[in-house]
Computed example of a mutant assay.
Amino acid sequence: TVEFDWGMDIYLARQIVSSKLELISGRLPIGTTQPILGPVSSRMGEIFEFAVIGEETDPMELRSIADWTIRYRLQGVEGVSFVINLGGFIKQFQVYLKPKMLKNYDVTINEVKEAIENSNRNFSGGIIMKGSQETLIKGVGRLETIDHIQNTVITSRNNVPVYVKDVADVKIGPKFRRESGSHNGKESVYVTIEKQYGGDTLIAIANVKQTLAQIAEDLPERINIKSFYDQSILIVKSIEHVEISILEGTFLIILVMMFFMWNLRSSFIASLTIPFSILIALVLMDLFGIKLTVMSIGGLAIGIGKVANGSILMVENIYRVLREKKGQASTLELTSEAAKDVG
């Protein structure tokens, strides 16, 4: 984990880390996976979660659909940074070697491994020029079926090719898993969606929902998508809470001011501080690129109470000074004096 100072440009930080990784990548031990940077996101960016479920469906099939159908389509949605799948079983082609046959053909495990790896790739065959046209030649060699692996040539003995099927059994099976997911006590795949850094949560979730509705039409009938966490619901409820807090605060200020001062004008002046303060805060948030998130809305809700308390103290003290020192100075001077008393 690399930590930077608060306010550091995230993209500049990624560029610095990337350049440092390039310097050390050549000195890593043999067999080490090349280090890569993850997406620009965090745990706070997890905005939507759902489960891929299916009655009497193989968990390996659920995971394959989540990995190769749902995830790839969601990664192209505007506002989505990363899609995480948990649960089910990852599909694998598994090669079970036969020790006796390896000895019989004088073939090592490493030879089998290298033969499969070298056969599992596409390559470029160059370009054929014909007049003003260019034809690209592509060699397709990716292994896609069990037969492809079984018929892979390892070596030859007495001019007779030795195939993988001669020394091993090839099957489709699940990869050893380190996590599991369930929904209502049944195997499922949990999918977590993270939004892009600085993106609008509500827009991103709306795009995700629209895409999921399209994906659901293409899935087999027995497989369904069931959402269980939607941050937009929390944001909408928080906005409604802020609206209710504004109305309640305005009403209580008028009630308190009328009860203690019996002055309708002062009550309305104090009550107007809440909507104007919220409006100014929203304008400043827009200028500085701060989106309406759970944290920002929570701050506005807390701020309403502070504003209400301060406005009551300020207006009450100004009203008292104007009444007690009426005629001793101008209204503006007395108002300034009263404001300084409160701070």
Rank of each mutant, 00 (worst) to 15 (best):
T1S: 11
E3M: 13
D5W: 14
G7Q: 02
D9R: 00
Y11F: 13
R14S: 06
I16R: 06
L23N: 05
G26D: 08
T32M: 14
T32I: 12
Q34F: 15
I36N: 04
I36K: 03
L37E: 07
P39C: 04
G45C: 10
E46K: 07
E46R: 02
E46L: 03
A51L: 08
I53V: 15
T57S: 06
I65E: 02
I65S: 09
A66K: 09
W68H: 15
W68N: 15
Y72Q: 15
Q75L: 15
V77F: 04
G79F: 09
G88W: 00
G88Y: 01
G88I: 01
Q92P: 02
Q92C: 09
L97I: 13
K100S: 15
N104D: 14
T108M: 10
I109S: 06
E117W: 05
S124T: 08
I127L: 12
I128V: 14
M129G: 10
K130A: 11
I137Y: 07
K138M: 04
E144I: 04
T152D: 04
T152E: 06
V153R: 13
V153S: 07
V162H: 06
K165G: 05
V167D: 03
D169K: 10
K171W: 01
P174F: 12
G181H: 14
S182W: 12
N184I: 11
N184P: 09
G185S: 09
S188D: 05
Y190F: 13
V191G: 01
V191Y: 03
I193M: 07
G198V: 13
G199H: 14
A204F: 03
N207V: 03
N207Y: 04
D218Y: 01
N224Y: 03
S227I: 08
D230I: 01
L234T: 09
V236I: 04
K237S: 07
S245Q: 08
I246F: 00
L247F: 12
E248L: 14
T250C: 14
F251R: 13
N263C: 05
R265W: 11
R265T: 13
F268G: 02
A270T: 11
S271P: 09
I274A: 09
P275F: 02
I278W: 01
V283R: 11
F288A: 07
G289M: 08
G289Q: 07
I290Y: 12
A301G: 03
I302L: 08
I302H: 00
N309F: 13
G310D: 05
M314W: 09
E316K: 02
I318Q: 06
E324I: 08
T331Q: 02
E333A: 13
T335N: 02
A338S: 10
A339T: 15
A339W: 07
D341K: 15
